[in-house]
């Protein structure tokens, strides 16, 4: 592997890892506040991508501007999904049944997308779609960098909300120990709803970032479920930094394997990582207490 290729793979891996990390953050939030594994997260990502594409083809404006609509809409949708669907599940079988429920949600979204927009592959065209720039002999697409920046901004705002605001404090308390949080006067029900909404709002950002760079089609979310599941199991769903670290590592490894193995076989790295982790450390590498029993 030449130096330029090495650098190129590294940059691609970091850029992709940023997106994975954003996805992992959303998943960790859902799991933290409700003990729910949100299989439909990737489907919402694709939905946001379609909305961005629809916005751009209709108005001719930049797809990033669609975030002004999709982020609040997804937040409300998330609060609604938790309120109307997730809370109806019995607590004893919550985690298992939530997987089935969100899986059903993913099927409905995929079906409706196919119904509305047909199965034709779509791509957002902007002025900078095919632009590249060069660093130290590595070619990097501008859209990839923009997607990465979007992911970093979203992660940064998430970090700010969680660490610096009172809502974030309440959220973290709810994630750590629900009963104790209730004892100190936190309305955990409301906070969990906000947590779910914020998680889904990150899907809006992630989906838009994804659509900038990739061709989208209704069944695309299956392609993202692999990385998503690997992140859940390898990272262990304990903390957002842990999951983000697992996401970044997998993104970089994936990018490096793409060169010698090709796209299809490189995709298997996620599953290999998943099964390997199960054999060595079933609770994941960063998860700890929370992840062990879900």
């Amino acid at each position: 592997m030449s130096g330029g290729l090495f650098l190129q793979s590294l940059i691609l891996g970091v850029l992709l890892g940023g997106l994975y990390a954003l996805m992992a953050a959303g998943l960790t939030l859902y799991f933290g506040v409700m003990r729910v594994v949100m299989i439909a997260h990737a489907a919402f990502l694709v939905l946001a991508g379609y909305l961005a594409w629809f916005f751009t083809t209709r108005t001719g404006l930049d797809p990033i501007l669609s975030l002004a609509v999709t982020v609040p809409a997804f937040f409300v949708l998330g609060v609604g999904i938790r309120r109307l669907l997730i809370t109806r599940l019995k607590p004893a079988t919550m985690t298992m049944m939530s997987v089935l429920l969100t899986f059903a949600l993913a099927l409905v979204i995929e079906g409706l997308l196919g119904f509305t927009f047909t199965g034709v592959q779509r791509r957002i065209r902007t002025g900078y779609s095919s632009a590249n720039f060069e660093i130290f002999g590595a070619q990097v697409a501008v859209v990839k960098l923009i997607a990465f920046v979007l992911a970093v901004v979203a992660l940064g705002s998430l970090w700010f909300v969680l660490k610096k605001t009172s809502l974030g404090q309440a959220l973290r308390a709810t994630i750590q120990h629900r009963e104790a949080a209730e004892l100190v006067g936190i309305d955990t029900d409301k906070v969990a709803g906000y947590g779910f909404g914020i998680g889904l709002a990150t899907a809006a950002v992630g989906g838009t970032a994804l659509a900038l760079d990739a061709t989208i089609y209704p069944s695309l979310h299956w392609h993202w479920i692999g990385p998503m599941m690997a992140i859940i199991v390898v990272g262990g769903l304990g903390s957002i930094p842990g999951a983000a670290m697992a996401a970044m590592a997998l993104g970089i490894i994936h990018a490096f394997l793409q060169v010698p193995l090709g796209a299809t076989w490189a995709q298997t790295v996620f599953y290999v990582a998943l099964f390997g982790t199960l054999m060595v450390r079933p609770q994941g590498f960063f998860g700890g207490r929370l992840a062990q029993r879900f």
Binding site: V37, T95, M96, S98, V99, L100, W222, I225, G226, M229, A230, I232, V233, T264, W265, Q267, T268, F270, Y271, L274, F275, L278, M279, P282, R293, F294
Partner: peptide, 26 residues
């Protein structure tokens, strides 16, 4: 491998297995 984890993780592992096979058989 799969039965080492419970609940949602188990579901995830089973999905992963079928995805691997799809990739391999294609």
């Amino acid at each position: 491998a799969a039965l080492r984890v419970r609940g949602a993780s188990f579901v995830i592992v089973t999905i992963a297995f079928v995805m691997i096979l799809l990739l391999v058989f294609q």
